Amino acid sequence: MTIMMLRSDILYSLHVGVLETIGGVTCYVGTPTGDYDHQKVLLLFTDMFGITLGNNKLLVDDFAKCGFKTIAPDYLNGDEAPPYAMNNPEFNVKQWVQKHLPAQTRPPIDKVIAALKEQGVTTFAVTGYCFGGRYTFDLACENIIKVAIVAHPSQLKVPDDFTKYLNNSKAPLCIEVGDVDVEFPLKNQETVDGILGDGKFAPGYKRDCWPNMEHGFAVRGDILDPGHLAGKEGAFKNTVAWLKQYF
């Protein structure tokens, strides 16, 4: 599978969201044009490429077009990975991760949530992509959010994090993932099904596994390939359906 990075300069004119500072944190914000519930916010936790990546902005825009006030905080503190990091052998992923541990990246999230609560927001959902999966789980297990969706999550341990989710969270969980995801391989997916599936997690659980989709497809899939486009769009549609059902 080809993972394509869409150039932000080419797509910038298509973006309908705006940059705002919320709780001292830069955020990319998408606001529905029609009526929506002002007490609800969908938080989007990006992959390691952050809110400067055009693909991530477009996701925020699309969720807003579906009627959800959507906010993507810069929880990477302006130090996102460069757009073509995965194709650059000189980029050290492990080193980058060590500079973006929860001690550095969780505080911006908490600041945004606190500020939004002061503005009257009472209910949160989260969709987390790749690196953002860790924080989606953390907030769900602390019952700060009401609904959780993760797409090809990373930084999660199987079975530990999913057993913790079962025992602590009340947020219905949807997982969008591919069948050739090296970060979340099929054997791990099946283990998670055994923990949360078949009604074991009462609030709600589903896993959608897309054929021939690698890690990152829901954000950076090659939209010029019909199969990859179907996976990317399908994951988005399933996320919206989950939000409409539970949020």
Rank of each mutant, 00 (worst) to 15 (best):
D74T: 06
F137M: 08
D62V: 06
S154H: 00
F137R: 03
K146Y: 08
Y129P: 00
A140I: 01
F63S: 03
L116G: 13
N167I: 10
P73E: 09
L43S: 11
V147I: 15
E142C: 12
P108T: 13
T163Q: 09
A171D: 02
D47N: 06
E176C: 10
G50L: 05
G128S: 07
L59K: 03
N88W: 03
P83W: 01
I51H: 03
N87S: 14
F68M: 07
S154G: 06
F49L: 12
G67D: 08
H38Q: 15
T105F: 04
H152N: 07
V121M: 13
D62C: 11
K65N: 09
G67Q: 08
V177H: 00
K170M: 11
S169T: 08
P102S: 04
K146G: 04
A148K: 01
Y165D: 02
L173Y: 00
N168I: 08
A125D: 08
R106M: 15
G78N: 12
L53P: 02
Y75C: 06
I109N: 02
G78S: 12
N55L: 00
K157G: 07
V97K: 05
H152P: 04
Q155I: 08
K94R: 14
N92H: 12
E176Q: 13
P172T: 06
A114L: 15
D61K: 07
A148D: 06
V112E: 05
S154F: 02
A151V: 01
Q95Y: 11
P102Y: 03
D161S: 09
F63H: 09
P102G: 03
Q104R: 11
K164I: 04
I149K: 02
N56P: 06
Y165K: 03
V60E: 00
D62R: 13
P82D: 03
K146F: 08
L166V: 09
E90A: 12
E90P: 01
V121S: 14
F49G: 00
L43Y: 10
L156W: 05
D47R: 01
L43I: 14
L58D: 04
H38L: 12
P83N: 05
Q39I: 12
A115P: 13
R106Q: 14
T122S: 15
G132I: 00
A125K: 05
I71C: 11
L42C: 09
A171L: 00
L116R: 08
A114Q: 15
P82Q: 03
A125E: 08
L173M: 07
M48H: 01
P107F: 06
N167K: 13
D37Y: 09
A72T: 05
I145L: 12
Y135P: 02
F63A: 05
F91Q: 01
L166S: 11
E118P: 10
A103F: 08
S169F: 08
N167T: 13
C141A: 09
A151E: 03
I145P: 01
A171F: 05
Q39W: 14
A140C: 02
N56R: 04
A114Y: 14
L166P: 00
I145V: 14
F45Y: 06
K164A: 01
K94E: 15
N87V: 12
C174W: 05
V97T: 11
F49N: 00
P102H: 05
P73S: 11
D47Q: 04
D62Q: 13
W96P: 03
K99L: 07
H100Y: 11
K57M: 07
K69F: 10
T46W: 00
A114S: 15
V126T: 14
